Amino acid sequence: MPGIYLIAILVSAAGIVAIDARLSLAFWRAPVRTTVSIVIGTTFFLVWDAVGIATGVFVKGGSALLLGIDLAPQLPIEEPFFLAFLCYLAVVASGWANRRLARRPGRSAPGDEDGRDS
């Protein structure tokens, strides 16, 4: 079924957004920094993909799960969504790990003395 991969990415992203909203781990704690991190990470990985495609290392392959729309040769439209999801997941996981580390006796999370990043 075309589009199921993109739907899966969006549903997964919605789950991470819900976790982030509930626990205030990334975007709800520092929206500008989170957005900048996601944009920089996604851009980095899109450039990485472009280099991999240009050198013949990355090939799209055929799948009925993709929409069939390419942004460039061998670069399906789903790729930027996946990369942004991956970057957001990493930022949220980092926020969770920092919070867990800050709860350990005698420790504080990276950032301000109160354990919160600005």
Rank of each mutant, 00 (worst) to 15 (best):
Met1Ala: 14
Met1Val: 15
Met1Gln: 11
Met1Tyr: 10
Pro2Gly: 06
Ile7Trp: 07
Leu10Pro: 00
Val11Pro: 00
Val11Asn: 02
Val11Glu: 00
Ser12Ile: 11
Val17Asn: 01
Ile19Pro: 00
Ile19Asp: 00
Ile19Val: 12
Ala21Leu: 13
Ala21Ser: 04
Arg22Ser: 07
Arg22His: 09
Leu23Gln: 10
Leu23Glu: 08
Leu25Pro: 00
Leu25Ser: 01
Phe27Gln: 07
Pro31Gly: 08
Thr34Gln: 01
Thr35Glu: 02
Ser37Asp: 04
Val39Cys: 05
Ile40Val: 15
Ile40Ala: 11
Leu46Trp: 06
Leu46Gln: 07
Leu46Phe: 04
Trp48Arg: 09
Asp49His: 09
Asp49Gln: 08
Val51His: 01
Gly52Ser: 07
Thr55Gly: 05
Gly56Pro: 01
Val57Thr: 12
Val59Asn: 06
Lys60Tyr: 02
Lys60Asp: 02
Gly61Asn: 02
Ala64Phe: 08
Leu66Asp: 01
Leu67Ser: 10
Leu71Thr: 03
Leu71Gln: 02
Gln74Leu: 05
Leu75Trp: 08
Ile77Leu: 15
Glu78Pro: 02
Glu79Lys: 09
Glu79Asp: 14
Glu79Gln: 13
Pro80Gln: 12
Phe82His: 13
Leu83Ser: 08
Leu86Asp: 00
Cys87Val: 14
Tyr88Cys: 06
Leu89Glu: 07
Leu89His: 10
Ala90Glu: 02
Ala90Gln: 10
Val92Pro: 00
Ser94Cys: 11
Ser94Gly: 15
Trp96Ile: 13
Ala97Gln: 09
Ala97Phe: 12
Asn98His: 13
Asn98Arg: 15
Arg99Asp: 08
Ala102Asp: 13
Arg103Trp: 13
Arg103Gln: 14
Gly106Leu: 05
Ser108Gly: 08
Ala109Thr: 12
Gly111Lys: 05
Asp114His: 05
Gly115Pro: 01
Gly115Gln: 07
Arg116Val: 12
Asp117Gln: 13
Ser118Lys: 13
